[in-house]
Design a protein around this nucleic acid. Structure first.
Lengths: 135, 135
DNA sequence: TTTTATGCAAAAGGTTTGCAACTAG
DNA sequence: CTAGTTGCAAACCTTTTGCATAAAA
């Protein structure tokens, strides 16, 4: 699972609760797929874990602060989350027909010229359209 | 004001109500600044108009469908809107310190290579950081 | 034991909706 | 006249918060 992450949290002084572990376990499952808070909640329960919506949100907040989790806001009702260290920096291509999400390592920030002295610290880039099976 | 837009709507069979006109007027004010539904609502009232939150939302929805308005979701509580035809395609640089928003005409979609046959129809690109006065 | 985390229920905030009343054309 | 719009209030959903209880360390 994600022993390094657990250790990182422990070292920082956070307690390792069953809930926290379950949430990290779900996020570590089957390769970095984007999950909403609700989906994480359900998956924890399905895995036999025990948690609560508030707990999920509070942990996601904490994990984001620690740079372990990244929030991605797509054209959807709820925000999605993914482990930020499980893969290199990337952006998402969302198929608006089948819902499939693919990843690209292309990052526009590399190409951005100086914009009147603006110093970027963060950016969002998501692409919507049709995947090759839905064109 | 925005006679062409009014005409476009009328031609499409939509009725031109005072509310609809006021909302368009506010969006046309002082060059393409991003406004939330709440801000639009307040500005309409301040201008002596009369409207309602639902009406603002319903009109924004309609104006988006007609390609007249574009929704931009920033790192904020509420979504923002701008006229989509008042300027050429652009993206936003948001200063997270002073809140100032500047615009860039740079668009990453031009650089995007073929991504496994994905056909983009829409994209979001926003940059957060410090403007030159806040660095 | 002490500090942090959880669960619950309620609140907050943006956005949407049902429906009756209204109005532009 | 009548189809499309508005206003109002209530619903919806996600996310946040207060507080008492529970459990890591």
């Amino acid at each position: 699972m994600s022993f390094e992450l657990i250790e990182k949290l422990r070292d920082k002084g956070y307690k390792i609760t069953r809930q926290r572990e379950s949430i990290l376990a779900v996020l570590s499952e089957e390769g970095h797929q984007l999950l909403s808070a609700r989906e994480i909640f359900k998956k924890v329960l399905k895995n036999g874990g025990c948690t609560n919506f508030s707990t999920v949100y509070r942990n996601l907040e904490l994990l984001m602060q620690e740079g372990i989790v990244r929030k991605v806001e797509l054209n959807r009702d709820a925000a999605c989350y993914e482990l930020s260290n499980c893969e290199e920096h990337h952006h998402h291509l969302v198929c608006t027909k089948c819902g499939n999400i693919q990843v690209t390592s292309y990052c526009p920030l590399d190409e951005l010229q100086d914009e009147d002295g603006f110093v970027p610290t963060e950016h969002h880039f998501e692409i919507y359209g049709y995947c090759k099976d839905c064109v």
